[in-house]
Design a protein around this nucleic acid. Structure first.
Lengths: 135, 135
DNA sequence: ACGGTAGGTCTTGTTTTAAGACTTGGTCAA
DNA sequence: TTGACCAAGTCTTAAAACAAGACCTACCGT
């Protein structure tokens, strides 16, 4: 099966992976969540090949996960920002991060803590049922 | 940056992706969650190349995400089952599935519903804070 | 001895990725 | 007004990963 056939499978996981399931896309999105916005910021922070970065950003814009927003007129320049669809990927990224924290953290604990702005605590994520609220 | 360097980055997302961030691994795990257990069941349900499947299963066993369990003596045969570490990936998979449901479902709605055994409702996932319980 | 089955490995050609040089349109300072 | 510089890419080449399918290895039953 090829990558582009995957997106036509009748399976939400396959369709999601057809978009974000490659080597780099989720790392690009992690940077976007950390407020990285410009081409060379992404390049510098990720160490990704420029060609691959260019391709991924274009794909993410195509899919409506990022949008290009002009930030100056001359020369005309754009930055990349998350759309609502992109923001919806937060649970995916946070679950992967917490899985990594749990199973690959070294002696010094997880590399980054996540603080819940509303309650002020560092948190891990708990997946709950939308109907009854249980874990 | 190469794939194996990624796993040495000081970032839980990068380390997670070094294991499950390729084209096939999460689809293999989806099948494992759906109780697929044997080499040719995986092959038949996924349409994956045998060489790639063999490589992925070996990696997942190496990482302690799947384990080989003998199910008959002669000829000796093993099946692949999720370990606790593997089961911990459920939130990742379910978030990806629900993201796909939300943004790529066709007219007929999502291809598969998830029922919470405890409360009996079809559910979507809600990510909540481990400290205060809010979404 | 023969065909079937489970679980792989090997080979070949195609795609993707990595690394880094090159391009384009514009600014700025001398 | 010329030359250096910048952001945001594109192009080239070699290495790595993948897809498809043929082949291999125990062992079973007949």
């Amino acid at each position: 099966m090829r990558w582009d056939e995957l997106s036509r499978e009748n399976c939400s996981l396959a369709r999601s992976l057809a978009v974000v399931g490659d080597r780099w896309t989720l790392l690009v999105l992690r940077e976007a969540f950390l407020r990285t916005r410009r081409f060379d910021e992404f390049e510098a922070k990720l160490g990704i090949a420029r060609r691959v970065l260019s391709e991924r950003l274009a794909l993410l814009v195509d899919e409506g996960i990022l949008k290009k927003v002009p930030y100056q007129d001359s020369p005309p320049r754009c930055e990349y920002r998350l759309t609502d669809k992109g923001l919806d990927l937060y649970p995916v990224i946070i679950s992967l991060v917490h899985w990594g924290d749990k199973h690959y953290a070294g002696r010094r604990g997880p590399p980054m803590l996540h603080t819940h702005k509303t309650c002020g605590h560092d948190f891990t994520s708990v997946l709950t049922c939308s109907e009854c609220g249980e874990a």
